[in-house]
Write a protein that binds this DNA or RNA. Structure first.
Lengths: 217, 217
DNA sequence: CATTCTAGTCACCGCACGGTGATATGCAAG
DNA sequence: CTTGCATATCACCGTGCGGTGACTAGAATG
C-alpha cells in the first residue's frame, strides 16, 4: 500500500522528449529567469532527478533543446524561393529586402527573442546556441550582398551593424513594452513603418556612398 | 561580556548614506541580478533590518538611489557649451554630432548601461528611473533638431529610432562581449568607426530625403 | 539618577532552489 | 519463475534568499 501511484509508463525516450519539450514551454511562459531544474521538471510532470540521469544536468539539457530547432533564420530563408531574383536586385532594394525578411524571421521566433534577451544578462549554453548559428549566418549574409560592396563602402558595415542591433533591441524590448519612441512594437504596422524607413534611407545612402555604385554584381 | 563589539556610531544620516552608496557599488560590481537586500546590507557593512527601517524596503531604497544621480544625459550635455554653434549646424552634421555625443554620454555611464540591461529582463523601480528621465529627454532632443525636420521627413523618425536602439543594444552587449560584427565594442576605435558610419550615412540621406532640405532653421 | 527614544545587533522563520542517496517497480532475458 | 537491470519515485540535505520579532546600548530629557 506504500506507493504505486499509477507508476508511469517506463518509456525513456518519451520521457526525455517531454523534458526537452518542457524547456521550450517554461522559457516561453516564464522567461529565462525562471528556467531551472525544478521548473522544468514540474512542467514536464517528471521527477527532477531524471534530468540529471538522462542529460547530466541543466547545461546539457539546454544544449539538447537548442539543437532541436532552428533559432536563427538561415540565409536561404531570407532569400526566399525567388533566390535568383533577389540576387539580381539593385543593391538598395536588396538591402531593404534583407531587413524586411530579417525582421519577419525574428518576429516569427519568440523563443529566439527570449534567448536574445537572455544573452544580455549572461552567457550560457542557450546563448552559445545563437552565437554559433549567428556566426555562420553573418558570413553567409555578407556574401548575399557580395562582399565587394562592403569592401567598396567601409562605412556600410557600421550602419548595417547598428541597424541589425537596433532591430534586435527593439524586438527584445517589445516583449515588455508596447510603444517605444512613438512606434508600436507589438503591431505589424509599427514594424512596417520601420521597414519603410530603412528602405527610404537605403536608396540615397547606397547611391551616394561610393561615388557611384547602385547596382551589384 | 555579552556584546559591545565596539557598537557602531549611532549616526543615522551617515548609515543611510552608506546604504545608498552600497547600491551603486553592488550594481557596478555584480550586476542587477545580485542586487538584493542581503547583498546591499553586506556591502554597506550594516544589518539588513536597517534597510527596512530607514527606507521601507528594496523598492524604496532603489528609488532613493535613483534620485541621487543623473543617469540619462541631458540635452544640454549633448549640446555642450557651444550651444548656439551646434544649433546653427547644417542638419546632417548636427545629426552626426548628436550621435557622437549620445554615444559618449552613455559610454561614460556604466551604471546606466547596467540599468538599460536590467530593463530587458523586467520592469522595476530602477527601470522606472530611466523611463521618466528618458521621456523628457525624447521631447527635448527632438526639439534640438527642430521638429520641423521630423515633420518633413516621416521616415527619419524610424531610422533615428533604429540607430538609437542599436547604440543601446551594442552598449549593453559590450558588457559581456568584446567583438560584435567585426567591431571592437570595448575600444574607442570601435565606437569611432560607428560614429563615422553614422556621419557618412547622414549626409546623403538627409540631403535626398525631402527633395531638398540640407540646412535647418 | 531614572525614563524614554532610537540606532544598531542577533537570532530566527519560511521558502525555493540545486543536488544526491536510497528505494520501489516494471520489463525482459536467463 | 527468478534474476537483473533500467526506469521512475521519495525523502532528504545544504544554501541563500527576503523578511520579522526581540533584544542591547547610546543620547537626550526630566
Amino acid at each position: 500500500m506504500k506507493a504505486t501511484p499509477t507508476a508511469r509508463q517506463r518509456d525513456r525516450a518519451a520521457t526525455e522528449e517531454r523534458i526537452v519539450a518542457a524547456v521550450g514551454v517554461v522559457l516561453a511562459r516564464n522567461g529565462f529567469g525562471a528556467l531551472g531544474i525544478n521548473a522544468i521538471a514540474r512542467e514536464a510532470g517528471v521527477d527532477k532527478v531524471l534530468i540529471y540521469r538522462y542529460f547530466g544536468g541543466l547545461p546539457e539539457l539546454l544544449q539538447r533543446w537548442g539543437s532541436s530547432g532552428q533559432f536563427w533564420p538561415s540565409v536561404q530563408e531570407l532569400l526566399g524561393d525567388d533566390d535568383e531574383a533577389v540576387r539580381a536586385l539593385p543593391l538598395p532594394q536588396r538591402y531593404a529586402l534583407f531587413f524586411d525578411r530579417f525582421i519577419d524571421a525574428l518576429r516569427a521566433r519568440p523563443l529566439t527573442v527570449e534567448i536574445l534577451a537572455a544573452e544580455v544578462v549572461e552567457r550560457n549554453e542557450l546563448t552559445a546556441i545563437l552565437e554559433t548559428e549567428r556566426e555562420q549566418w553573418g558570413v553567409q549574409a555578407e556574401a548575399l550582398f557580395g562582399g565587394a560592396d562592403f569592401e567598396r563602402m567601409p562605412q556600410l558595415r557600421g550602419i548595417t551593424l547598428l541597424l541589425v542591433a537596433g532591430v534586435q533591441y527593439l524586438l527584445v524590448r517589445s516583449r515588455k513594452i508596447r510603444i517605444f519612441g512613438g512606434i508600436d512594437l507589438q503591431s505589424d504596422a509599427g514594424w512596417a513603418a520601420l521597414k519603410a524607413s530603412v528602405a527610404a534611407m537605403a536608396l540615397p545612402m547606397l547611391d551616394a556612398m561610393p561615388a557611384a555604385a547602385g547596382n551589384a554584381r
